[in-house]
Write a protein that binds this DNA or RNA. Structure first.
Lengths: 269, 269
DNA sequence: GAGGGCGTAG
DNA sequence: CTACGCCCTC
């Protein structure tokens, strides 16, 4: 059977609920992982998801900032919402999805953006981002009690040269500086993770999941970055049937600056 | 010939430009007086009005608050934007409209709302409103160099018992307290003004131009007030053909809390 | 450029 | 309830 998992930094789930609904209707993913929900748990639009057939929702949100949620057609158990860097924000949620044939563990992440200045000595937000990455080393591709494990979300780093519109121009721009790209790749490899977007789409090919709101014409200038990721335990690699980066979503009415990424797996149990 | 003049507290002209456009398209008034444009002069959507055949626009606005504009198919001259109470806000604009047969002077007013507490001793906003009314005495129905004169706008007072949904319940509510209603009626009569809405619609009949945003269902509960006015020099009375209070506009998508009032005159020269 | 928070205004 | 300003974040 095919199981599909989507990840999307939605930049306010309440403001963009109609967009989420139309996305779910068109793409019917089995699981949707949202980031930047900007929504306290008691104000999360649960019913809207239930009405659309997503009966299982785990969320970890706060007022105004950050926030992640994992939404599923299949039974879901929250394992943990870890407080990275111990500052009480809401950037991680670890759940297990019980698909009919396999238990799939999913880490849903929203990594700090890191501010403007890529120097941890003078920019505490960048320091926070690097500290967060170091702490992410503890999240490995070990499924624990599940069969397989995914790590998805907005990692706010575009690791490869082809993950940005201009490698040269972005080398000193937060999200593509060597300390970030190298650390992220090291965290990934050391944790035993496979970069599934790059398994499906060859590293030679440019691919982006985010375009700044500030650009006049995001589509023409196309100055994007691949900030959103789908990592998997190596056993999932042969089961991956395809990845869709839904570029068109950036052109929707009142869009998020990120687009959904959908991964489809043939899970044969 | 018939000349029509509309007045509308638009509560942000930029936010509600589509509503203004659809109103102009349907009703084709010759002159439109707006209040609460909330728009600095250099950001006023001039071109949109030009495109709709309103080539003559005078505005007096500021950032964020207040602001009035007079928009016309016929040539327009600004006479004065008076600084009532000397605090530099933008609540008045005096223009002359050159209709083919008559010069029509129009005072466009946005009177201070006055805050919650109807006591000038403890509420400086109410003090300001009363001071403003006193200063309005200097604006009389004298056409000056023009043939006739109008005073239109949001006067933030409902003078008659039939200008509110409940006279009794509003006697202590700012907009319908005796000091306000009596002062306004005195300013009007002493200035030689005719209350043209009440010339067209008998004082026995309830008529409102404003419904609070706070009410759940403005149409059913119908707790409105007549805060917007069209006053004229007495010579205009026999020329008044009708007044329309466009109640339906309160039900439009993302409406202003005020509706347009349109006065039609047979100006025979 | 576009969210959110808050406070102020209507 | 709605729209602003200001300040913050991304």
């Amino acid at each position: 059977m095919t199981v599909s998992v989507a990840t999307w930094n939605i930049n306010s789930v309440r403001l963009r609920l109609p967009l989420v609904q139309s996305f779910l209707e068109s793409w019917q993913p089995d699981v949707l992982c949202l980031q930047e929900t900007k929504c306290p748990n008691d104000q999360f639009p649960l019913k809207a998801f239930h009405r659309m057939g997503y009966e299982h929702v785990e969320m970890h949100g706060q007022k105004g900032y950050h926030g992640v949620a994992t939404i599923s057609r299949f039974p879901l158990e929250a394992v943990e919402a870890r407080d990275f860097c111990g500052i009480g924000d809401t950037r991680h949620l670890d759940c297990v999805v019980r698909t009919p044939r396999r238990a799939l563990r999913i880490h849903n992440f929203y990594v700090p953006a890191g501010g403007d200045e890529p120097d941890p000595e003078i920019n505490p937000k960048f320091r926070h981002k690097l500290d967060f990455l170091e702490e992410m080393r503890t999240i490995t591709a070990d499924p624990g009690g599940a069969d397989s494990v995914l790590l998805v979300g907005d990692l706010n780093i575009a690791p490869l040269e082809t993950d940005v519109w201009s490698h040269k121009q972005l080398l000193k721009v937060v999200s593509h500086t060597p300390v970030e790209t190298e650390t992220l790749e090291d965290v990934r490899r050391a944790g035993g993770w496979s970069d599934l977007i790059r398994v499906a789409i060859p590293p030679e090919e440019k691919i982006y999941t985010w375009w700044s709101y500030r650009a006049r014409d995001w589509d023409v200038s196309d100055r994007g970055r691949r900030l959103d990721h789908v990592w998997g335990s190596p056993d999932l690699e042969p089961m991956l049937s395809d990845i869709t980066v839904l570029r068109e979503a950036r052109g929707w009415e009142k869009p998020s600056d990120h687009v959904p990424v959908i991964a489809r797996f043939r899970l044969d149990g």
